[in-house]
Amino acid sequence: MSLSDTARTQGATPATQRRDPRQIPDRLTTRGQRVLKSWEALLLLVGIAIFVANCFASPYFLSPWSLSDATFNFTEKAMIAFAMALLIISGEIDLSVAAIIALASTAMGAAATAGFGTPVLVGIGLGTGLLCGAFNGVLVTRLGLPSIVVTIGTMSLFRGLSYIVLGDGAYRGYPDGFAFFGQGYVFWVVSFEFVLFAVLAVIFTVLLHKTNFGRAVFSVGNNATAALFSGIRVPRVKMILFLLTGLMSGVAAICLTSRLGSTRPSIGLGMELEVVTMVVLGGVSILGGSGSIPGIVIAAFVLGLLTFGLGLLNVPGIVISIFTGALLIGVIALPRLIAKGRR
């Protein structure tokens, strides 16, 4: 019997077995299958389908300037959604983000009327967002109040303050340099807002998925009591997340006010619904404990392209709002229906 026959008869040991170099390792195959079966992959296919449908809806859609305009439908909301995703993953929520935009915009408008320049206006916008986030965070982490109740209350409080200051009026006359944040372009059709959105997407991806703080956020969302006993300072983590959400609302207020060139107390009205929809559509569990920033990025493009396409078809804004609300309910209900179907 030859040596090769002996090997076939007795079987080669693991140490002597040779893998076909053309064969994909099991680990990579499993990872690839997991990616293809993920919610993000499905969402990406939906986004591609909406993009193709928009191409047929209007012959002007593929124009570079038209595509650039489409990004304004989601960049400001996505900036808030990045921070909101972390907050919802931790088991909390902030429904006052649109009202924070209104209050921050009102504060910037008052400062612009008083003659302050662009750097001061930016500082006031960011500072107002931080203060509002701190107020929400203290009520939740120090007093132990439910975040959904607190932020429903502050949603009325912050916007009410804007109505008290402005009434039926509006602030205009912002400095010329302030217009760059919402209307400026970094290169050709690439707007400053889109560049800022991309930079924030990278920052929040690293923060949530590559740092100890991100792991702490997931731990708090899965089991806050176990996280506390494992040494994580749960109130501190949640306070930071409320501050971060307020700060991102301030950033969105700067961009939105700059793009519109004026401030009214109704600015950003209803935006909190679209932000939460974007977060949940991106795969973040509304119950906390799971989610990803790449999913938020894809969801932002999907919602942005969808609303832009409906606008091209002259669909009224109220119908788009109804559709957004229905989409939010559907995305929340779908996993439960699938789970019940499997059982």
Rank of each mutant, 00 (worst) to 15 (best):
G167F: 04
G283C: 06
L334Y: 13
L256Y: 12
W39N: 14
S58C: 04
M239I: 07
D69C: 00
Q183L: 13
A81S: 10
S156W: 08
F204C: 04
T16A: 15
T128W: 08
P146I: 02
F72C: 01
M271P: 00
I298K: 05
S38I: 06
E76N: 02
F135V: 14
F181Q: 05
T225Q: 10
R264T: 11
G268W: 06
K238Y: 05
E92N: 11
G288R: 00
I88D: 03
E274A: 03
L166A: 07
P316W: 15
R34P: 00
G123N: 04
R236I: 08
L244H: 01
L305V: 05
Y185M: 00
R336P: 10
G268I: 03
A339V: 03
V319G: 07
A179V: 09
L161Q: 01
A41V: 11
P294Q: 02
V217R: 07
L86K: 03
N222T: 11
F181G: 08
L243P: 05
G169D: 10
K238P: 00
Y163C: 01
R34E: 14
G137Q: 12
L200F: 14
G311M: 14
A170K: 11
L45I: 15
S191N: 13
T106I: 09
V46Q: 08
Q33L: 15
V199F: 07
I329H: 02
Q23E: 15
G295T: 14
A49P: 09
V297F: 12
D5A: 10
R18C: 11
K210N: 07
F218K: 09
A114C: 13
F135N: 01
G282I: 09
V234G: 11
R342M: 14
A326S: 15
I80W: 04
R342S: 14
P265S: 06
Y60I: 01
R27A: 15
R18Y: 12
L161A: 12
G341H: 14
Y163N: 06
R172T: 14
I318T: 09
K340P: 04
S147R: 04
T30N: 11
S96D: 02
R259D: 12
R264H: 09
S230R: 07
V315H: 01
L305F: 15
L45W: 14
T205S: 13
A49H: 05
I48H: 09
I338D: 04
G160Q: 09
T75I: 03
L328C: 06
P175W: 12
M239E: 06
R159W: 09
G167A: 01
F61Q: 05
L243A: 13
A326D: 01
L244D: 05
R159Q: 03
A99F: 09
L3R: 06
L310C: 09
H209N: 06
V319W: 15
V150I: 03
T13F: 06
L287D: 04
P59Y: 02
T29F: 13
A252F: 07
L273M: 13
I148Q: 09
I240N: 01
T6L: 14
R142V: 05
T263R: 04
W188I: 03
I88E: 01
L241P: 07
G184E: 06
A198G: 08
L196V: 15
I232L: 10
M271E: 10
A134M: 15
R27T: 15
I232N: 01
G214I: 06
T151G: 08
V122A: 10
S266Q: 12
F51N: 02
I240E: 03
D69V: 02
L130S: 11
A253Q: 11
G283F: 09
